[in-house]
């Protein structure tokens, strides 16, 4: 049983000049393992900023507030230490890394997170099996990480990493965007397989209820202007789909 706690989180990003711009304005959120939370909100409201801030991206400056995982101060940890502590971020835009093969990368990551190198043969077996479950062609293992992958292929590989790294809390930033219908089912099944294991929590950022039909959330949060403005159950997602965000937007933002 794990708990990710976010308290009154304020985050700024350095703008074009030197002026820092505040993007997160007091986020409060608690994600327990065994729970699935969905975050929905308009473009530019700060959802990815929240995800990156939890993962520790250096561009985002936490100006106040706290993030803890099982009481441990996440903000004091380096990016790699956060991952080893059990946090995982499936990125909205996975990065292409030239010259580093998928298999070499995954073995290095698995070694770092598990604290010991898996035996090569066992690792190859595990990798092949996991790739098969996500309908990923085995030739991808020898390709350079994300290089030239299609949008959907990148997202599948994020879920491949999720399954191999087996974190306590997974943050999935628009993992459903850019997936065709079959891929959405495969990826959802992958997320569900991860969720079913006790001790695993999910924070899922999305624009669409489509994925929420496969990955049923326990809680839905509406994210507007850098904070959570409403919380509810799965029915809230349906309401957003029908009516949009209009009723949550302050008049002056509507320009």
């Amino acid at each position: 049983m794990s708990t990710l706690e976010i308290r009154d989180l304020h985050v700024s990003v350095a703008g074009q000049g030197d002026e820092a711009r505040e993007i997160l304005r007091g986020v409060d959120l608690t994600v327990d393992s065994a729970q699935t939370h969905a975050i929905m909100g308009p473009n530019g409201s700060g959802k990815s900023t929240l995800a990156y801030s939890i993962a520790g991206h250096p561009k985002y400056q936490v100006t106040s507030g706290a993030i803890t995982l099982d009481g441990e101060d996440v903000l004091a940890m380096s990016v790699d230490a956060r991952a080893r502590a059990g946090l995982f971020l499936a990125m909205q835009y996975p990065v292409e890394v030239p010259g580093v093969t998928v298999s070499n990368f995954l073995r290095t990551a698995v070694t770092a997170v598990r604290g010991e190198a898996p035996k090569l043969r066992e690792f190859v077996k595990e990798l092949n099996g996991t790739m098969k479950g996500l309908s990923i062609d085995p030739v991808f293992a020898q390709r350079n990480l994300n290089e030239g992958f299609s949008g959907g292929e990148k997202k599948r590989h994020e879920i491949l990493q999720l399954q191999l790294l087996n974190p306590k809390i997974a943050i999935l930033d628009e993992t459903d965007s850019g997936l065709d219908i079959d891929a959405l089912k495969v990826v959802s099944a992958g997320i569900n397989a991860y969720r079913e294991v006790p001790g695993h929590g999910v924070l899922l950022i999305t624009h669409y209820t489509r994925i929420l039909r496969y990955v049923r959330p326990d809680f839905v949060h509406v994210f507007v202007g850098g904070r959570i403005v409403e919380e509810g159950g799965p029915e809230l997602a349906e309401e957003l789909e029908a009516n949009g965000y209009e009723r949550f937007l302050p008049a002056e933002v509507m320009s």
């Binding site: 520790g56 890394v97 580093v100």
Partner: peptide, 20 residues
């Protein structure tokens, strides 16, 4: 950032990229 977000240390991440 991407490599470190998967638990890989800064040195090891550099090593991976340089080796590549």
């Amino acid at each position: 950032f991407y490599l470190m977000a998967r638990g890989i240390s800064a040195l090891e991440a550099r090593r991976l990229v340089i080796r590549g």
